[in-house]
Design a protein around this nucleic acid. Structure first.
Length: 833
RNA sequence: GCGAGAGUGGCGGAACGGUAGACGCAGUCGACUCAAAAUCGACCGACUUUGUCAUGUGGGUUCGAAUCCCUCCUCUCGCACCA
């Protein structure tokens, strides 16, 4: 393996999202890696120098869970899983550069990650900051969000507390403007992924406004996107976590109870959706800087501390949530935007806020302006009187990467009493995880280890303590695509290799990673550019997101889930249990999951039918971006087709086809046209990710080959068939590589491997049909068809069309006012009378 | 609630604005077989069948609409009650 090929072929980097080594591959992997392998094999055949690597996203919590539950060391568990899954992937017949393989849990990978981190630290991209974490007080451990269920720890059941910890954060918000604007040029990404990222980054323009409390010198700052509606203000509301709320709660037990109630509700979407808007009147008042009027300050459960300033001003006339809140607590509602067509005197707000366009009213110096202009004018005035300013607000928050876990990449810093935070010198990297750890008590084993965390300060040499946090595993997967370019290098990446291979030309994976993984990778690429490691602007030039693999689910009479292997489907459509004979309830078609027992083991499918069948079925079922249904009948159909192709190929002429004959009988010509139409059709389909269409073109071709076989040994047929089978082997090879090689080996024993031969090129002369069928319409309705030579003269076609008996009947007694003629396609007579 | 996408036979789905339903699955009939499986062949949207109606609904643009535009309905996905 050389990092940068020197043969001059254009590069093409195909990458599928690397798997977490859970132990076995699942159908989602099969689909993902089949799609990538088709692209890799096709691009190779088209003359590209293709890189198609594979690795393992090998750090993570499940390994620690296995250690706690079964006493097996995370490393052993992980490496055993990798060995097993590698063998399974190899049985799929994937054309992967296994020489580039690595696992993120290997010090030869994560040591370079530590080096990247120290570079980022020095460049000011990283900082240490206090952050809230989910704390389980019984297990004495930090919980991931998914380990918190209904506000309780998943294992202990204890109520989870919010606890402040010092954590490491990557300052991804510094890149927010760039991460957003670059989306506009990423035209080979699905529109909806770009949209999801744009929403996640969440740019908004508005103003920060400071409101003075009527008593004391304190101020509350709010963020608003509608400074134009300040004259319509009726209240100010703060989040339950806001300092003002805390201050009020400290002296008022009722307020404290309300704040506690808000915080116990959790922030899950389902809860928030149904949550009734509630508030608590603090009794405090603030002054509106434009009107001088006083308004009450409320604590409200719909205000988010994490967004903006954690405080809003409420304008019920023009915001539905504010209106709902105002109606509930009987607060003032003033309209300040008059919708078009309404009368200023009679216009009132009922129960629907008016958030459209119009003209400002009841708004002093803003009266008569459109809201957009009023916004600018309001901001100008706020700045002029020194109580606010126009700002751009971002929803994106910085990326906290500290995890209090063992099975992750150690964060390479040392805490020294005298020198503060000191990075571990690069000469001491990789900073390895200790292997002799125990999982017999809760918490982070790194922290419990008797010696590991004790080190001398690299700066002053005095005894100091290592950081015992490890990185979020999203860090591991944020640069692995770059490491693949030079996986053995003794630096994170080699400049020549990454600058040659990046960006990834085609990245393929699940939509579930549309936001975090892809955004973090985009950020890391920028961070690596700023620290001089590469020059690519974006990591993934092309992105394809595949759908899920679903399957029917089954239940017994008692409601227990049944495995597909446990059921029998009868000719009359009924379904029963294979052993007990009881009637089985056929449930929904849904995502394969262990709990519903509707999983299909790829290993068993490959063993029974072969990898080609599994690949073929998964490609044939439907367009790859949609969810597919795995069906037993569909697999059987795919299997039968592989057998049929093999039988067909057994009849193929053996040996080189020889010189092109002078004469082809009609059946031989028809076969040659089918061959070249198939070449063109499959090529176009593969270029466009239309794998199901490519499969259909191959089916049609097989039918044409069957027809040709029946025609017998007419003039030129032997040659046409040799040409056809050679094309067949090549065209199916990206999808069914094993069968393709078998067929090719039969055609020319001892010849070159299909995988090393070029993609066929369609002969344009053979793409044109010998005659074309022209549809003849009268007034847009089909009345008949005629056969003409391609490129026949318009007047001849029109004459023939008019004479077609059915058309002639439709035209009888009518006056033709217009004749539409689309060459080789259609004639339309427009008639009157 | 907001945003995006999608609605085509029993099913999965084809279809540069130009013969809707390619191809497959399921199904029906036939051949082969003692029989079954496999294989091969034919059929396979609906109906009141010289034809009519059909691509979620109702409009529009066009000689012509599954395709373009608007209305509404349903489903899926994503999300952030984001001020």
């Amino acid at each position: 393996m050389e990092d940068v090929p020197t043969d001059g072929r254009p590069k093409y980097y195909v990458l599928e999202m690397f798997p977490y080594p859970s132990g076995k591959i699942h159908m989602g992997h099969v689909r993902n890696y089949t799609l990538g392998d088709v692209v890799a094999r096709y691009k190779r055949a088209r003359g590209f120098s293709v890189m198609h690597p594979m690795g393992w996203d090998a750090f993570g919590l499940p390994a620690e869970n296995a250690a706690r539950e079964r006493g097996v060391h995370p490393a052993k568990w992980t490496w055993d899983n990798i060995a097993n899954m590698r063998a399974e992937l190899k049985r799929m017949g994937l054309s992967i550069d296994w020489a580039r393989e690595f696992a993120t849990c290997d010090p030869s990978y994560y040591g370079h990650q530590q080096a990247l981190f120290t570079d980022m630290l020095r460049a000011g991209l990283v900082e240490r900051r206090e952050a809230y974490v989910n704390w389980d007080p019984v297990d004495n451990t930090v919980l991931a969000n998914e380990q918190v269920i209904d506000g309780r720890g998943w294992r202990s059941g204890a109520l989870v507390e919010k606890k402040k910890l010092a954590t490491w954060v990557f300052r991804i918000t510094d890149e927010a403007p760039e991460l957003l604007s670059a989306l506009g040029e990423m035209d080979r990404w699905p529109e909806r992924v770009r949209l999801m990222q744009a929403n996640w980054i969440g740019r908004s323009e508005g103003a920060r406004v400071r409101f003075k409390l009527t008593e004391g010198d304190e101020e509350i700052e709010v963020y608003t996107t509608r400074p134009d509606t300040l004259f319509g203000m009726s209240f100010l509301a703060v989040a339950a976590e806001h300092p003002i709320a805390a201050a009020v709660a400290a002296r008022d037990p009722d307020a404290a109870a309300f704040v506690a109630d808000c915080q116990s509700k959790g922030t899950s979407e389902a809860v928030l959706e149904t949550l009734e808007k509630k508030g608590f009147d603090t009794g405090l008042q603030v002054v509106n800087p434009f009107t001088g009027l006083s308004h009450p300050v409320w604590i409200a459960n719909f205000v988010l501390m994490e967004y903006g300033t954690g405080a809003i001003f409420g304008c019920p006339g023009h915001d539905q949530r504010d209106l709902d809140f105002a109606r509930k607590y009987d607060l003032a509602v003033t309209a300040v935007v008059l919708p078009p067509g309404e009368d200023a005197q009679s216009f009132t707000i009922a129960n629907k806020a008016c958030d459209g366009t119009g003209e400002m009213i009841n708004s002093g110096f803003l009266d008569g302006l459109a809201p957009d202009a009023a916004r600018a004018a309001a901001i100008a005035r706020l700045e002029e009187i020194g109580v606010g300013r126009g700002v751009v607000n971002w929803r994106l928050r910085d990326w906290g990467v500290s995890r209090q876990r063992y099975w992750g990449c150690p964060i390479p810093v040392i805490h020294c009493d005298d020198c503060g935070v000191v990075p571990v010198p690069k000469s001491d990297l990789p900073l390895r995880l200790p292997e002799d750890v125990t999982f017999d008590r809760p918490g982070n084993p790194l922290d419990h280890h008797p010696t590991w965390k004790h080190a001398n300060c690299p700066s002053c040499g005095k005894p100091a303590l290592r950081e015992t946090d490890t990185f979020d595993t999203f860090v591991d997967s944020s640069w692995y695509f770059a490491r693949f370019c030079s996986p053995l290098a003794d630096e994170p990446v080699t400049r020549a290799a990454v600058d040659h291979w990046l960006p990834v030309d085609q990245y393929i994976g699940g939509i579930e990673h549309a936001i975090l993984h892809l955004l973090y990778s985009r950020y890391f690429t920028r961070a690596m550019r700023r620290t001089g490691h590469l020059s690519a602007k974006e990591p993934f030039a092309g992105l394809f997101t595949q759908g899920m693999v679903n399957h029917e689910s089954y239940k017994g009479q008692d409601g227990r889930w049944l495995y597909p292997e446990e059921i029998v489907r009868h000719a009359d459509g009924s379904v029963t249990h294979i052993d007990t004979g009881e009637t089985v309830i056929v449930g929904r078609i849904e995502a394969m999951s262990k709990s519903k027992r509707n999983t299909i083991d790829p290993g068993a499918i490959i063993q029974r039918y072969g990898a080609d069948t599994a690949r073929w079925f998964i490609l044939s079922d439907n367009p790859p971006e949609r969810d597919m249904e795995w069906t037993e009948s569909g697999v059987l159909g795919a299997y039968r087709f592989t057998q049929r192709l093999f039988r067909l190929a057994e009849t193929a002429p053996v040996g080189a086809p020889g010189a092109v004959p002078d004469d082809f009988a009609p059946a031989a010509r028809a076969l040659r046209r089918a061959t070249h139409r198939t070449i063109a059709g499959v090529t176009e389909a593969l270029e466009n990710f239309g794998f199901n269409v490519a499969v259909a073109r191959i089916y049609e071709f097989a039918n044409a080959l069957t027809d040709a076989e029946r025609a017998g040994d007419v003039a030129g047929m032997a040659w046409a068939r040799a040409e056809a089978f050679a094309a067949l082997a090549r065209l199916i090879s990206p999808m069914m590589p094993h069968l393709a090689e078998e067929i090719a080996a039969r055609l020319t024993p001892g010849g070159t491997l299909i995988a090393q031969s070029d993609w066929p090129v369609a002969d344009p002369a053979l793409l044109a049909a010998e005659s074309v069928t022209i549809a003849v319409q009268v007034l847009g309705k089909l009345r008949g068809t005629i056969e003409v030579a391609p490129g026949a003269k318009e007047e001849d076609v029109l004459a023939a069309a008019a004479e077609e008996p059915n058309v002639a009947r439709a035209l009888d007694g009518k006056r033709v006012v217009k004749r539409v003629y689309v060459p080789n396609r259609i004639v339309n007579f427009v008639v009157a009378g």
